[in-house]
Write a protein that binds this DNA or RNA. Structure first.
Lengths: 110, 110
DNA sequence: TACATTTATCGCAATATTGCGATAAATAAA
DNA sequence: TTTATTTATCGCAATATTGCGATAAATGTA
């Protein structure tokens, strides 16, 4: 995303877009699914789980991490990737707010 | 998104990714914000609201519509765009499920 | 130190997205 | 029908994303 483009929008809008964008690829949804399913989470496991090469998965993990959706701790010579709840709460409250807003409107339109 | 790429993932993963991707741009978040704020919703209004040209906004609306996040009804010589709650519920339950999954794990990792 | 394992980065090609000017299409109003 | 208003589409350039082979970096182990 270009540096100047985000200037036109609020920080909140940019953050939501960044989080949504990070989830906007089936492989990254699959990674989130897997991180939620297993207890110990190592990138190597994910490579065996998804139909993608290791560098590709590493890059997807990087994007999820940059967006704040996951965090990674060095654990021996592997890395333990985990879901970061903070970012998810942002998304969750976004959709909750929309639902509440829709209820408030109640068919004023369309 | 390439046609063959989605084959490797489940329909659910693809749907979630499609919805997230559609929200993965600040302009489209801003459009959702605006649709929620106003009662009557016409594309022309949005053009005045956002720092983007009319064809650009039309395209963003198209992407939101393709993803199922909004719906548009012809209303005179304008078009009434509205948020489609169905798609939002999919996203909302996705994040709710993750939250519940995280609670169930409760620090088994990291 | 040398080697194995695991993850990250580089560099590239293919593809997708973004933004917009020009223009078309659709409808309403005169 | 002519004109104005509103929205969609086309075509293009600029930029971003995706995927992966090759390779580097980091850490554990012998």
């Amino acid at each position: 995303m270009g540096a100047t483009k985000t200037d036109h929008f609020t920080p909140r809008q940019n953050q939501l877009a960044t989080l949504a964008k990070a989830l906007g690829h089936p492989a990254r949804i699959a990674i989130m699914d897997y991180l939620l399913k297993v207890d110990t989470c190592i990138c190597g496991d994910i490579v065996n789980e998804l139909p993608l090469a290791q560098p590709t998965i590493s890059q997807h993990l990087k994007e999820l991490k940059n967006a704040g959706l996951i965090k990674g701790n060095v654990e021996g010579n592997a890395i333990c990737y985990c879901i970061d709840e903070t970012a998810l709460e942002v998304m969750q409250s976004y959709f909750t707010n929309i639902s509440e807003g829709m209820l408030a409107k109640k068919s004023k339109c369309c």
